[in-house]
Design a binder for these strands. Structure first.
Lengths: 111, 111
DNA sequence: GAGCTATATAACCGCAAGGCAATGTTTTGG
DNA sequence: CCAAAACATTGCCTTGCGGTTATATAGCTC
């Protein structure tokens, strides 16, 4: 389940934000530039995946990170990790390839 | 893009199979228990994500793993990695929680 | 307690994703 | 050559997801 949850870019951003410090729904909504219900919906998914916890303080909800389920992702990734020799070089090569491919896809979409 | 591609359980299984050795489309189709076009469709997605490469030999296509894009996932995961103290304990706890939650969800779905 | 604040939930919409059957393409074998 | 083998692509259907607006709920404030 964790993989599906992380597939959403918005949800990864939420986790990245919560990595710094706990946040209110309102703060997240502002930083993500989406509607409040949209944010709440993503938070619900993250909650059910166990990736975030909530503390209620009056009407406010403090959302904080719970990284435990990420261990599942890490575990899946583990047997692959030795395979790319220089990890950072591989990432850079991949990102370059991405840029090239996106350009190619745009060309393709113009047909 | 890599995260979205990995969200599909079937595609993760394909990668796991290719981690052992390159395979033909037919072999994968058999092991995945899905239609041949279904398999080809997933392979196309994996190809476009740069996660697999193909070598043609007559009508046969040997698919092999290319782990490079996984570096992107690893890079995203990196700043979280220190956060779960004992990695394996965290995973076990999470998997236990999963089982409990799935049971709870089934109960919920019965309404 | 009336209204405001902060968040959750509900209802609806559009689209993309995954599945299958049918068909196209290429290469091999006889 | 012709039939079969091995894949890829196409077309179609259904489902689920992400987004928004509208509405409910809960707690604070004055």
């Amino acid at each position: 389940m964790t993989f599906e949850v992380l597939a959403e870019p918005v949800r990864r951003r939420i986790l990245d934000l919560l990595r710094e410090r706990p946040r209110l729904v309102g703060e997240l909504t502002a930083e993500l530039g989406l509607s409040q219900p949209g944010t709440s919906k993503h938070l619900r998914v993250l909650r059910e995946a166990g990736l975030v916890r909530v503390r209620a303080q009056a009407q406010r909800r403090w959302y904080e990170l719970d990284p435990a389920p990420l261990a599942e992702v890490d575990a899946w990734l583990a047997p692959y990790r030795w395979m790319w020799a220089d990890r950072f070089d591989a990432l850079e090569r991949h990102l370059d390839a991405d840029a090239a491919q996106e350009a190619a896809q745009e060309t393709e979409e113009e047909r």
